[in-house]
């Protein structure tokens, strides 16, 4: 019974749902503020995404005539669920809800694909031609960034596995333990190219400029989201915010995690602060200074530079550096 309550707490409150929502909305707000400041605007208050979300929850839901109703409504929720599940897998310094090394990089790769798929399926179910164009772009975006992402994660697995027992590990807990022992991953110079590659992947994963080809407001009216309104749209916006937090938090766990402190609350704060820093570097700055790329440019970009960086890291790790 106690166990179940504990699990419910994990799922609903702390590393799970509530925490994700709060952290995600906060990060989204901070991001908007940062971008605004970089563009010499005052920008909205930090809680603006929260207000937006609450407002959307109260609005009417319109289901277009051509939409496949159930899928249209279920898609955002499925995306949200998978994001919350991912958050359960990501350890925060030495805090992880699983005692044994349960979490697994491959699970995360797949779970992180689901929000994108949910967006695609939802947009597809709305029946709008704009959404059709949008989902094709989103899918090409997924195809583009998946290659460097996969190589980065395998590189980390190899690095940690070699240090621990000479065998493969896909366990995030093992990765965190490794960093607690040897210091943050980013301190190892052979991993720096991989870190840069992952930093470049994050903006495309969360769909921000210059890689927001799927939701290009100006060209295709937010693509998959064009028909959405009310709570489903709100949940999609929430997904977007949570995705920002999850991706940056994952980066922190993979590259910046260290011994940490003994207090969970303090660790969480440090994690959040680091996540904000990563957001600033990889999302806000790029958003402020670049313009949108075309879809084939995005594809070309990801299959050349970040992939080359990640491969460089892999080779270096393979050589035992």
């Amino acid at each position: 019974m106690n166990n179940i309550l504990q699990f419910l707490f994990y799922i609903l409150i702390f590393p799970g749902f509530a925490f994700c929502v709060v952290a995600g909305l906060l990060i989204a707000g901070i991001d908007r503020k940062l971008v605004a400041r970089m563009q010499k605007r005052i920008g909205p208050p930090i809680l603006q995404p929260t207000y937006d979300f609450l407002k959307l929850l109260g609005k009417e839901t319109i289901i277009p005539r051509h939409a496949a109703r159930k899928v249209y409504l279920a898609a955002p929720v499925v995306g949200l669920l998978s994001l919350v599940t991912v958050s359960l897998f990501i350890p925060i310094f030495n805090f992880s809800i699983f005692d044994k090394p349960v979490a697994d990089l491959i699970v995360i790769i797949y779970l992180l694909t689901i929000p994108g798929v949910a967006l695609i399926i939802g947009g597809s179910a709305s029946g709008s031609p704009y959404a059709g164009v949008g989902i094709s772009r989103e899918m090409v975006a997924i195809l583009s960034y998946e290659l460097p992402l996969v190589i980065v994660l395998l590189t980390i697995g190899r690095k940690v596995g070699m240090a621990l027992d000479g065998n493969i590990t896909f366990s995030l807990k093992a990765i965190v333990d490794y960093q607690a022992q040897y210091g943050p991953m980013i301190a190892q110079w052979s991993m720096i190219p991989a870190a840069i590659a992952l930093l470049l992947v994050i903006p495309c994963k969360v769909g921000s400029l210059p890689f927001d080809i799927a939701e290009a407001e100006i060209e295709i009216c937010e693509g998959p989201l064009v028909e959405y309104s009310g709570p489903p749209l709100g949940i999609f916006k929430l997904n977007h915010a949570i995705k920002m937090f999850i991706m940056t938090s994952l980066f922190v766990t993979l590259f910046l995690s260290g011994a940490g402190t003994n207090f969970v609350a303090l660790n969480v704060l440090i994690q959040f602060a680091l996540a904000v820093v990563v957001t600033f570097i990889s999302i806000s700055v790029l958003k402020a200074i670049t313009a949108r790329l075309r879809v084939e440019q995005t594809f070309k970009f990801y299959w050349t530079y970040p992939t080359a960086l990640a491969l460089l890291s892999l080779v270096l790790v393979w050589l035992g550096l």
Binding site: V117, I135, M139, L143, I151, L154
Partner: peptide, 27 residues
């Protein structure tokens, strides 16, 4: 391993295509 993972994503991509063009969209 890398090829296998990429192939998996491409599989997803082509099924997205089928989903979009057969089951969703306009009748």
């Amino acid at each position: 391993t890398i090829v296998a993972l990429i192939v998996s994503v491409m599989t997803l991509a082509s099924f997205i295509k089928v989903t979009q063009s057969v089951f969703f969209g306009q009748l």
